[in-house]
Design a protein around this nucleic acid. Sequence first.
DNA 1: GAGCACTGC
Length: 651
Amino acid sequence: MSLTFWKPGTAGPGSNLDRASEVEETFLPYAPVQRQGEQLPIFKHRRNLLYCVEKYGVVIVVGQTGCGKTTQLPQYLLQAGWADEGHVIACTQPRRIAATSVATRVSEELGTKLGDEVGYTIRFEDVSSKEKTRILYMTDGMLFRETLVDPLLSRYSVIMVDEAHERSVYTDLLLGILKKIRKKRPSLRIIVSSATLDAINFLDYFSQDRSSEKATIVSLEGRTYPVEVAYIQEPIEDFVRKAAEVVWNINLQQGPGDILVFLTGREDIERCLDELAEMLPTQATYRLPSTAMRLLPLPLHAGLTTEEQLHIFQSAASGTRKAIISTNVAEASVTIEGIKFVVDCGFVKIRIFNPTTALASLATVPISVASATQRAGRAGRTSPGICYRLYPIAVFKALPMTTSPEITRTDMTTPILQLKSLGIDDLMKFDWVSSPPAESVLRALEGLHASGMIDDNGRLTPIGERVSECPVEVGIARMLFRSKDYHCGEEILTIAAMTTVQDVFVIPDGAAGALAELERRKFTAEEGDHFTLLNAYNAFTKYGRSSGWCKSHALSFRAMSRAVSIRSQLKKYMQRFNLPIESCEGDSKRLSRCLVSGYWRNGARWTADGTYRSVRGDMVLHVHPTSVLFTRKPRTGWVVFHEMEETKKTQ
DNA sequence: GAGCACTGC
């Protein structure tokens, strides 16, 4: 590559970047909300906000991350008496880590013990007290599940749905239910916290009909640093290579501050690290400008072990600059302090479910304006920063405003079963924040009907009622219930837990991968992946459940520990439904039959050319390379598969 | 012979 130097003081790296024409006006990542050109009021004093909560049933709150809305707002409400008379203030988060860390911080601020006045509830962990807790942080999925038990959520006086702009399936379902609850219980207050661009959508949603009369929107002023945005002039072909060049040039041109690069996936990240590794030796041989620092490139993606992820947070030695090459995890899930430069490739990988074919796929798609703003904002958390977008400004202007809500591109089988359980039978009349596609609803209903969860009239059956309570997919739940007939509850429980966690086996690239592959073979069962997972789980519990053991046997300790938690939770459900937990005592036939009873809709037949044909739809299927059946023929010529996915494989 | 965005109950 050629080394290009910029004059000091220019916006910087990106060849042919002309400051005058290509640097957008410096902006604040969280601009005030505008409607038809009119700026909506910004509230600086808490009494204004409390007045709105008092006067309006629904308040949409816009504020930057770190303006204190998540930690401060519930405390204001507490002081204003919203948690008197045994009421609880809830604050929901899309992620477990946010619920726990925020609860910890707020309980410290109030000088109380975590789990007393301030607590949290996430799957597997309830650190709260029925008597004492006044402010409860929880995942939105957890609160949605609570509606199955208490349909009016009667213990809560205020429910704040935080990070609503992320539009997870559970956030959407929860908002739909909350709107319904407010009609029956107008004393309930709802606060929806959102990013600027989505705020108007939520306001419109809550004020679109006459019965939900009172909704308003307020902006909270926060401390933000300006972020300068630079665009590339011409579209580029290889953003991975370009990202590496830009990182290199930032290091030469700019003062101190760490770099965060957004790429799409592990493959991109590794290639970018390779490109940077090739450039690194020149650090020693060239005479570099005095501003240049030692560059320390680090990968970041969800597949890393906890240990590996810790490197990201350690501050680099003096004179060294971290360059964190990341997937979308760094956009909202992981926050790294000290980032001054962001490089944004403009793409993201999202999972798309096609309801017509029942095929899931991972697609690389352009990000939204909201997402680009969020990424840029990562540069301005602790000081003014610069964001380099690896796409022209014209491309930016053509981006969709927001990312499509998950509910529009996911399998709706489980959510619809849960809605049915809440007594919402007419799905066409349900007041969705965004409607799922009609085909998606139809496919889910058809599937629920075929597996006996709903009757001919679309009403929940007794088994459907019980399955809706189980926190697993319908097929898995069916399997758990049928294990009674096959006397194999013990093993089915393990298989259910193991199929729920992903990335159980850790197979790295290269020579280490070949060794890991050999380790995995020790667990391989000729019956297939379900039995292989069962073997791995049993070995894990037999040999002391240690991380060292996992490491030497190509297993992910994180995944295995999670499987243990899920298994014990599912065991409680089985006991509640009086399902016996018996062992099949090595009778693999009985176990196979039980698997088929849950997953008979996912049957496929082996053919002589090595491919499979699905029973439903007669589609040509290939075995995924991560399956133990990738290298072998099924003994009976028939398989049941866990899921179908569309990949890059051709032919 | 071929592949792994990210969450959540």
